[in-house]
Structure formats: C-alpha cells, structure tokens
C-alpha cells in the first residue's frame, strides 16, 4: 500500500470513529428507544383488542411496512416543510427511524405477547390480580424474553440504517466518509474503512445480544 493511501486511512479513522461514537450510536439508541416505546404501545393495543385504536395501529403498520425507509426520510425532511413543518435533520432521522422500526418491532412484541398462554392470565385473575398486575408480573416479563433476540436484531438493523440519514444531511459516520472522500477521491479505501467500523459496531452489538440472551436464559433452563 502506498504511503499516501495509508496516511489517509490513518488520519480518517479517528474522525470516522468519532462520528460513529458521537452521532451514529446515539442516533441508533435514541431511535431504538422511540421504536421500542411505539412497538410496546402498538402491541399492547392489539393484544388487548382496543377497538378503534386497533384499527389505527393496523393502518400505521400497513403504511410503514409498505413504503421504503428512504422515501419516508425524504417526505419528512424535504416534503413536510412545504406544509410548514420544518424539522432539524437529526430529529427527522430519529422520528423516521423510530416510527419505521417501531412498526416491525410491534409485530415482534405482539407475537411475543401472544406466545404467553392465556391460561396464565386466567390464573392471575383467579388469584385476585387485575389486568395491569398480571401484565406487569407475568405476561410482559415472559414476552420480553421471547422478543429479546428479535429486538436485538432490530437494533443491529437500525444501526446500519442510520447511514441513510446521510441523505437528509445528518452529519453522521457515513456522511463524514463521503465528505472526506470528496477531498481525497479514495472511494474504495474510505467506504471500505467505514464499512469496517459498522462491522465493528455490529459485532459488539451481536456480542451484547448473546450475553443478554444468556443472562435471560429460559426460566429453569428449558424453553417454556
């Protein structure tokens, strides 16, 4: 490898990593938190079969899952200003990523809730607990464990999707790679480098996910 290329890589690495740590990861975590809140609410509404709200949830899931993330980003960031809604790019990215992944995660959480046998709910009523108490102490803990691996995958997917925020001017890790490349014209090297950093982040997340799964290992060792 020639010395110029090597220097470019060495100089850019800390810059890219810095943007990764300061922007990509927070963007992932904040969007994921939003997605999780949305997913749990939407799943609970469907699980409890709340009449009108249920329809609204189905509609939301239908819209989000039927349109591309990139198009959603463009509509919110470039489209909404024409009706007077002007959002900061980072905020727009958080909202779109959160609502987008939230729709997928809602289905995960709903499936996990429904995998908890209804008989446990009835047994809970029979020992005097109310709906909320049964949900908190019996259903949600079991559902959370069932959903955990899939939610982990969602977070990993989201980490990679944050790179799309570059298209709506969010200065995150991939956008920074584009900026540097605009000066030095070494696409293969720089995009390869940024890919490696994403790979590094995802590997750490996968490792955390495994660790979490182990800590949550099924009650009594056997899958219920």
């Amino acid at each position: 490898m020639d010395e110029r290329l090597w220097n470019i890589l060495v100089d850019s690495f800390p810059q890219l990593l810095g943007y990764g740590v300061r922007v990509t990861i927070p963007l992932t975590l904040i969007s994921f938190a939003l997605a999780l809140v949305i997913a749990v609410i939407v799943a609970l509404i469907q699980y409890a079969d709340v009449k009108v709200l249920r329809q609204i949830c189905r509609f939301y899931i239908w819209i989000v899952r039927g349109t591309p993330l990139l198009v959603q980003l463009y509509i919110v960031f470039f489209g909404l200003p024409s009706v007077g809604v002007v959002l900061d790019a980072f905020l727009a990215a958080v909202l779109v990523l959160g609502f987008n992944e939230g729709a997928y995660m809602a289905e995960t959480v709903r499936g996990a809730l429904e995998s908890v046998s209804r008989g446990q709910m009835e047994a809970g009523y029979c020992v005097g607990m109310n709906y909320l108490q049964i949900m908190t102490h019996v259903v949600l803990p079991q559902a959370f464990r069932t959903a955990f691996p899939a939610l982990g995958n969602s977070m990993i997917g989201m980490l990679k999707e944050t790179s799309m925020a570059a298209t709506i001017t969010v200065m995150e890790m991939f956008r920074q790679a584009q900026v540097i490349n605009g000066r030095v014209y070494e696409s293969l090297a720089l995009y390869g480098e940024v890919a490696l950093i994403y790979l590094l982040f995802c590997t750490v997340l996968t490792w955390l996910q495994r660790l979490g799964e182990k800590r949550l290992s099924a009650y009594g060792g056997k899958k219920a």
């Binding site: 047994a123 809970g124 079991q142 219920a224």
Partner: peptide, 24 residues
C-alpha cells in the same frame, strides 16, 4: 385448571405468593 396454568416466569414459591403480595 386442567393444564395447571402456573406462572412460567416464577418459581414454585413465587407462584404461590404472587397473588398474596401483588393483589393482597
């Protein structure tokens, strides 16, 4: 119940105490 319907995320002791502590 016919199929017990124990709380699968709770130990034997917790299965019996849950109603007492949470509801009672």
């Amino acid at each position: 119940f016919q199929n017990y319907n124990l709380f699968l995320n709770k130990t034997v002791l917790q299965n019996v105490t849950l109603g007492l502590t949470v509801a009672g």
